[in-house]
Design a protein around this nucleic acid. Structure first.
Lengths: 163, 163
DNA sequence: GCATATGGGACTGAAACGGTCCGGTATATA
DNA sequence: TATATACCGGACCGTTTCAGTCCCATATGC
């Protein structure tokens, strides 16, 4: 699977929506526009606010707005806001000191961490601006480069800042 | 999270173990050597056999062995054997024709697929041989290929792998 | 003061996950 | 041929996680 949860999916949609139409918007309005159930959208937005991806304004005329410009927000921030640190396996998550009980037998830990880093790197390449205003060509290189080893390096070395 | 399930973790450990000590081994022995509970190990091995990652021999003196040489088996095969197709979100899974109900609003689909490809590419880089016999230098290039060096802090320094 | 809007957390039903167990079948060996 | 060994397929179950809802407290504009 390696599957991202529905909540995270919502978060990306909401954040993308905020990126496309900037300024402050009430959770209710965002929910209507994105067709996400209102309580759920609200819950997601709260988490985004806590993580610093969006800023919130309470009270009448309040609402949510992006904390920074879309091109300065990486998609991994949105994902981590909902799901916590991105870690492929328990033992590759450096933050939790969960020691691997099989470590002496498996010797797999270090490799998982590298895989993990590769995934994180792939996600770091994509900004909210890329999601909100696609087709500017940058992402294509990632899609087309998925054939062999050079792709990671290639995608990583070119600047993804076109917008 | 982007977290891989425990079962998949077991699968990698078992496959790695088979890669390191080739020939056929009974599920029971593998379970003992890897300290994975026997019924669970058995279940995982069955799935690996079905997916063609390992071959099985029934009857007395039977057991499991790798279907191919370790360097010819990518870990994404092992992962997919347990978890099914690697897809980050529902709508980025091309196999299921689950149409995205928000598609007109989100326009996110294509980007998810690119992210997905990047993840798959990252996983395709690693073979079972890399997991079983690390330190041959191949993986290092991937780890270092991310330009986001700050995320990589300590990745290279964490070379305490080989057991 | 009041309407509006977010903050925080409790709660619930459903689904997935981790793990176990059992009857069936294939095969090597005595 | 009889028997022990070992995989095959799937049912089963307790626990956890997930998606979604609801409520009350708090902050703010008018």
């Amino acid at each position: 699977m390696l599957r991202i949860s529905k909540m995270t999916d919502y978060a990306v949609v909401l954040a993308t929506h905020l990126a496309a139409a900037d300024g402050a918007h009430a959770a209710r309005d965002l929910a209507l526009q994105t067709q996400i159930p209102e309580p759920t959208a609200s819950k997601v937005l709260k988490k985004l606010a806590r993580a610093g991806v969006v800023i919130s304004q309470r009270g009448a005329k309040g609402g949510y707005a992006l904390a920074r410009r879309p091109e300065q927000i990486g998609i991994h921030e949105v994902i981590e806001a909902i799901e916590g640190p991105i870690a492929v396996t328990e033992c590759s998550d450096e933050s939790t000191d969960s020691f691997c009980e099989y470590e002496t037998n498996c010797g797999v830990r270090a490799n998982w961490q590298r895989i993990n880093l590769a995934v994180q790197a792939a996600l770091s390449e994509i900004s909210l601006a890329d999601m909100a205003f696609p087709g500017t060509g940058e992402l294509i290189s990632i899609a087309l480069s998925s054939k062999d080893a050079e792709r990671m390096r290639g995608a990583g070395t070119q600047g993804n800042d076109v917008h």
